[in-house]
Amino acid sequence: MEQKLVEIQVYGAEQLCASCVNLPSAKETYEWLEAAVARKFPNQPFTIKYVDIYQPPEDEAIKLFAERVIEEDMFYPVVLLEGNIVGEGNPKLKTIFSELEKFGYKAV
């Protein structure tokens, strides 16, 4: 299977969501996830972006999803992989790694 360059987006905010008080911040989750994916799939390119739901970039699709996170009271961070939600609140590496493997990533 040919590997595709996958984009991971982590949506969150500086302030922890009410149900996520004892969990890492969205920014910490973003940094942790970036390191974990790079370690599990070395030399396999991917992009990862952090999106502040209260200050999203001008990209319309990103803005719309950031609004959805707020309006639907999603537990953040919300992790998207190629536009699909793969984690919310306390994302699981096993789930994210499994999704990456569907795109041809090979665990080391």
Rank of each mutant, 00 (worst) to 15 (best):
Y54I: 12
F75G: 04
N84A: 10
P24S: 06
Y105V: 13
G89E: 11
N43M: 15
A26I: 12
E14G: 13
P56A: 09
F75T: 11
L100H: 08
L93C: 09
I96Y: 06
N43V: 14
Y105S: 15
Y105H: 11
K106R: 15
Q44E: 15
L93F: 08
L64M: 09
C20H: 00
T95G: 09
V37I: 14
K94C: 09
E101R: 14
A26K: 06
A18V: 04
K63M: 14
V86Y: 01
S19V: 04
S19G: 06
S25P: 06
E58M: 08
G89T: 14
E28I: 03
P42H: 15
K94I: 13
Y54K: 11
K102A: 03
L81N: 06
W32E: 13
L23V: 08
M1F: 06
Y30I: 12
E72Y: 08
N22F: 00
L33S: 01
K94A: 01
D52G: 09
G12V: 13
V78F: 13
P57W: 04
V21G: 08
F41P: 05
P24F: 03
V69N: 06
E71C: 07
G12T: 05
Y30A: 15
P45I: 07
I70V: 04
T29W: 07
Y76D: 12
Q3C: 14
D73K: 09
E101G: 13
K4I: 07
I48E: 06
L16F: 00
P24G: 10
K4M: 00
K40G: 08
L93I: 09
L80E: 11
Y11T: 11
A13M: 04
V79A: 03
V10E: 05
E7H: 00
I70G: 00
G87F: 02
V51T: 07
E2D: 04
D52I: 07
S19Q: 10
N22K: 13
W32D: 15
P42L: 12
L5V: 14
R39P: 01
V37G: 08
K49R: 04
L64V: 06
L80N: 01
E2N: 10
K102G: 13
V6G: 02
V6H: 05
Y50S: 05
V6R: 12
E31Y: 02
K106L: 10
T29E: 07
E88L: 15
E60N: 00
Y11G: 15
V86Q: 05
L33H: 03
K27R: 08
P56T: 09
E88S: 03
P77K: 14
F103M: 09
D59Y: 00
E7M: 01
K102L: 05
R68S: 02
D73F: 02
L16N: 09
D73T: 07
I96G: 08
A18H: 10
V10S: 09
K106V: 12
K102Y: 00
E72M: 13
